[in-house]
Design a protein around this nucleic acid. Sequence first.
DNA 1: CATGAATGAGTCTTCATTCAT
DNA 2: AATGAATGAAGACTCATTCAT
Lengths: 235, 235, 235, 235
Amino acid sequence: MGIHLSDNGYSCVTLRTGRYARKVASTPAFRRLPRAVREQQMLDAAVRIFSRHGYHGASMDEIAEKAGISKPMVYAYLGSKEELFVACLHREGTRMMEAIAQAAVPDLPADERLWRGLRAFFGFVGAHRDGWAVLYRQARGEPPVAGEVAAMRARMVEVVAGMLDHALRAEGREVAETELEVVAYALVGATESLADWLADHPEADPETTATRMMNAAWLGAAQLLRGTTWHPPAT
Amino acid sequence: MGIHLSDNGYSCVTLRTGRYARKVASTPAFRRLPRAVREQQMLDAAVRIFSRHGYHGASMDEIAEKAGISKPMVYAYLGSKEELFVACLHREGTRMMEAIAQAAVPDLPADERLWRGLRAFFGFVGAHRDGWAVLYRQARGEPPVAGEVAAMRARMVEVVAGMLDHALRAEGREVAETELEVVAYALVGATESLADWLADHPEADPETTATRMMNAAWLGAAQLLRGTTWHPPAT
Amino acid sequence: MGIHLSDNGYSCVTLRTGRYARKVASTPAFRRLPRAVREQQMLDAAVRIFSRHGYHGASMDEIAEKAGISKPMVYAYLGSKEELFVACLHREGTRMMEAIAQAAVPDLPADERLWRGLRAFFGFVGAHRDGWAVLYRQARGEPPVAGEVAAMRARMVEVVAGMLDHALRAEGREVAETELEVVAYALVGATESLADWLADHPEADPETTATRMMNAAWLGAAQLLRGTTWHPPAT
Amino acid sequence: MGIHLSDNGYSCVTLRTGRYARKVASTPAFRRLPRAVREQQMLDAAVRIFSRHGYHGASMDEIAEKAGISKPMVYAYLGSKEELFVACLHREGTRMMEAIAQAAVPDLPADERLWRGLRAFFGFVGAHRDGWAVLYRQARGEPPVAGEVAAMRARMVEVVAGMLDHALRAEGREVAETELEVVAYALVGATESLADWLADHPEADPETTATRMMNAAWLGAAQLLRGTTWHPPAT
DNA sequence: CATGAATGAGTCTTCATTCAT
DNA sequence: AATGAATGAAGACTCATTCAT
């Protein structure tokens, strides 16, 4: 029960009695907005809520309230909780991918390219801690949406594997595809792990984190490029 | 409607209409078992169910049924859903830690030690795909239990950082603690990522995966140990 | 997501996410049509939908979509779901009554008249399976509209009773009104039952069904007309 | 809001605020009852509510309240709204079938047997107006349960067809199966129609109604048995 | 005339949890 | 020690209906 300043900037006094909010004397507020705008508002709210409470923990009621509209509109526009989540995932994922792609242009030397990609990635995570944490961390194991997350992850792995492959070929070397995939997996995992660390340490600097990641992983990859490998000792 | 042989080995004909099974002609079964045994049965069931449906997706009903006892017993023994989950986490986590600790004894050369640790780790994941997947993957983002998972992860990071530190000191070098932590984070992340990959590829061989991990990450760490570092290019 | 050719013949590409279709590049279409035409389109759609999903199961959304107009128009023209249903009922009922009345003209011998009425009735049901099934079968027990259905049924009973009475009087006999009503009820029930059967057996021939109905019921009525009656045995 | 004497005979003061009833100072009332008893109470309540509001119109809330227990128990025992309805249908249908079977024993002359069956049927409908009206009338067209109703109806048709067949064979005559089925359909329809009439006329006497049904339908069937048939006039 | 945007109220259903036996 | 019976609370989703444009 109380006064609540809705996130769309319009004020509205809400009286909570039981489960339903009853609007009392609403300001001209809840103006009719075009679909495109409302959808973005919904996605904004959803990303926030999902990131805080996880997929299951988030309730459509809460999301709708945060978005400043009624539940049926969310369903009307986004379909279902699952679809809503996927929509969030796509929006955030696309934004991130674009940020990376813009930075890591193909015609750079391999290490420079990776470095720029990493910097863009950590920059994105630093700027959208919510988006990243919510969507990649929360959703990894949620059966209903795990598939989507996995797909997005697979795209990243593929991109990274592509980078490595490109670099290797440039040096006249070649590595089996599986091998590459696994290395890429490890790199992506390491990177995500640092991204988690970054998301949990608001005081940390994305740039520095990117540098660290380069140090921790790239050097290994560099070895790999050079053909150095490690073999298990004879048992 | 059908005959269902409960997992504890005692038979019981059930007539399913609605949620509650109607027990028809149950054997004198459900013998009173000592607490320790019952608890393990419950944890076994819980790990299975949690791993399949995630923390939220799993229902206490299902777990109790799978364990072959009634819900109140679960509550009597384990307290609550959250506590039950934490208990699972601890049991599996401890088992894993022990497996690793037994393999990666401190008085080995650094690379051999890491190698043995990794082999033990991937061996464990390969053998307990359920346990690992359910507990580490599913629970990462579930707010109610994320803390516990994070704690366990932190322990692993610490162990890895310890290994690195030990190796560095042996070479007379020293690295800032934060630096170490971050590298350890990356290594753990990469390793988990490969573990995920392993859990999803039943045909894959844990040993090989461990070798790959060594290749992908250790070489980088080796460089680090040698003092080689990478610096961002001047912009 | 797909291209959907709306039933009114105007094309419109729709992107479905959630409940509301997103209109993309709709033709200038949805031309302003005179009220009478629009109303018939609505009723056509409504009859179809009602007949498929029942009164409750049908949603105004669906009906509006099928009719190719927006919900507010449906409300503007027909008032409310109940009124819409009643309008359907009246239209279909009237059509049927007219078909029967045209066939079963009063100045025929009783059996010929009944035969023609039946033939017209089954012909109608055969041709408008939807209309009949939806309106008479679906709505019998739906409290909000049961009254309307009952009224229409009563009119039919009355008509049949009238036929019988006419026939009896022609033979100089007379039967209490209640008696007549009950017999008429039975005849109507039997007829509807066969109509149901017909609606469920698309391969069946209306004419043959009508003949069967004559055989099954009229012979009994004929006896009645002749004064033969059956009495319960003394117990 | 008010004092409500629950149907199980135990008193309980209920305060309705919003959708949920809040129990205030309940008497030792809501005693734990064995499943069998509770299930019957639920079915009793469900039959009443379904008969008054129809399948869709009835709400599980209302049914649970009427039964004097909480909704989750209804779900625990009966599964879902649909299953609950089907359970009602089966209980009432079985009762009716048994009443009829007990009366219309096979080794009676055909007319006597039919008469007894009809008398039992109308007696049942007269005594269980609710059960009959709700279940047969309401549910005919409700898509989710129409199948069940149709099945029960089919059983009745089969029984009637069996009676007719038996009678015909006794007279050394034989009729195609389809023919029989259709006649049986008509008889069942006529009977149901009168049952409806009876359910709507509380002052009417079941015995008399049964007699009327015999008169209206049996005479026709008798003709049929005698081999008299009606043919459409040449057009 | 015509509609996209919006919602209050209610639906069925499920779940973690606890008595009373 | 063990369980069948019971429930408060909440969750996702839908629908008939109406403004404002």
